[in-house]
Structures are given as C-alpha cells and as structure tokens.
Amino acid sequence: MGLFAPVQREDGRPVCSRKNCRAPAQWQLLWNNPRIHTPERRKAWASCVDHRVWFEEYLMERGLWKETRPLTADRPMETR
C-alpha cells in the first residue's frame, strides 16, 4: 500500500475519507486543483453514503470537483 493509498477495511474495501469516519466507501469523488495540477490530473476521495453530499459541496465551493462515481469492485479508486 502506498503512502497516500486510501485506508482499507479488513475486507479490502476502502474506508470513507471523512475525518473519523470508518464506514465503507461507496463513492469516489474525483477532483483537481487547477493551481497545482495539470488539467487531466485527477485526485480521488472515498466517501460513504452519509458524507457524499458534504464532499461534493466542499469541492464544488472551491472549484475543485470534477465527477462523482460509484465505487464498486469493477471500478476501483481512480487517480491519474
């Protein structure tokens, strides 16, 4: 596991990125900071159902949000 890899549960599923939340992640929020990232670069935060809206609003208010995708076995966390 890399230094910045998402935290995972014992079953291998990513955990929500919200501070102090250990719920299984069901969403990935792709974002980019245009001041420091190239346009094609995507960072990702994992989110549980309860924190999805919080993450989207946080990223949208700062002009960083790009896309929200389901986090499933056939679609793992995406970063590029």
Rank of each mutant, 00 (worst) to 15 (best):
I36A: 03
H37Q: 06
R80A: 10
P24V: 01
D11Q: 08
P70A: 01
S17R: 10
L3I: 15
R75L: 13
D11M: 09
A46G: 10
P14I: 12
K19I: 10
G2Y: 15
G63I: 02
L71V: 08
E57M: 01
T38H: 08
W27V: 04
R62N: 02
L71K: 02
R18D: 09
V53D: 02
H37M: 05
W54V: 03
E56F: 01
L30P: 13
L59G: 00
R35K: 13
F55H: 01
E61M: 04
V7L: 14
D74T: 08
L64A: 03
V15L: 14
A25Q: 04
E57P: 00
K19Y: 14
F4D: 15
A25H: 01
R18L: 13
T68I: 02
C48T: 07
Q28P: 10
E61N: 04
R35V: 08
F4N: 15
N33P: 07
K19E: 14
L29Q: 08
W31K: 05
M60D: 07
K66P: 00
N32T: 12
K19C: 10
M60K: 07
D11T: 07
V53I: 03
P6H: 11
K19R: 14
H37L: 02
E57G: 02
G12C: 05
A44C: 12
R42K: 13
A46D: 13
E78P: 02
D74Y: 07
R42W: 15
Q28A: 04
A23R: 12
R13C: 09
G2W: 12
